[in-house]
């Protein structure tokens, strides 16, 4: 006597109702498990208040030509260097194919933008970059201690040299120091830099690929 809802799966037989129930129950359990797991994984991501602390304002008029300051942004350092004419000229003279990393690494511009100096600054005299070495995150030394072989920054941990556009030139670091999203708040005359922009501000920041 064959039973419609009997034991599943003897060879060649049609799937029974029990087979269907097994698969359906297993599927629901798998999806349910995933749904429960997701909040427990996602809670590790930056919280809303952490994200909200994401912008600062800096008055760069306090930085004389030929010097630099380090400010804290999002828990890490940001370098602001007021570059001399020589430093700017040095950065602009570099051919693109002399760079280990040819990407501008500029959060204000699309990925893949060529890493010319012009694509890394909003105003040539102010270079603003995140200050963690792209190798393992140490803070490179700058004007106050050691500018390395390319007059920019030198990372003491594993010997990465950055140039006057904060681009990696030699050493283990794989990428240029990234440019955070920033603009000069209040237009062309302003010396007030806002780092960390809302989408609205980002669309009016004045950045363009050159």
């Amino acid at each position: 006597m064959t039973e419609e809802n009997g034991a599943p799966g003897a060879d060649g037989q049609e799937p029974s109702r029990r087979d269907f129930i097994y698969i359906a129950a297993g599927g629901v359990a798998a999806v349910g498990g995933g749904l429960v797991a997701w909040p427990f994984i996602d809670q590790m991501n930056p919280a809303a208040d952490t994200l909200a602390l994401g912008s600062i304002r800096v008055d760069v008029s306090v930085v004389p030509v030929g010097s630099e300051i380090t400010v804290m942004w999002r828990g890490g350092p940001v370098f602001i260097r007021h570059r001399t004419e020589e430093e700017i000229a040095e950065a602009r003279a570099v051919e693109l194919d002399a760079l280990p990393d040819e990407d501008a690494r500029n959060d204000n511009l699309p990925a893949g933008t060529p890493g010319t100096d012009a694509n890394r600054v909003l105003r040539p005299e102010f270079l603003i970059v995140k200050g963690n070495c792209t190798h393992l995150g140490c803070v490179p030394l700058g004007l106050s201690a050691n500018t390395g072989d390319y007059d920019g920054w030198y990372c003491p941990c594993h010997g990465s040299h950055y140039d006057t556009s904060a681009r990696i030139r030699r050493g283990p670091a794989p990428e240029n120091l990234p440019v955070p999203d920033y603009y000069f708040e209040g237009g062309d005359e302003s010396m007030l830099v806002k780092i960390g922009l809302s989408p609205d501000e980002a669309s009016n920041s004045g950045w363009a690929v050159s």
Binding site: M44, N45, P46, R74
Partner: peptide, 17 residues
């Protein structure tokens, strides 16, 4: 990395977890 840090750098969230 950001997920591990719970922020944009090693910080309070990292220490706590």
């Amino acid at each position: 990395r950001e997920w591990l840090w719970g922020g944009f750098s090693v910080g309070q969230a990292t220490l706590n977890r």
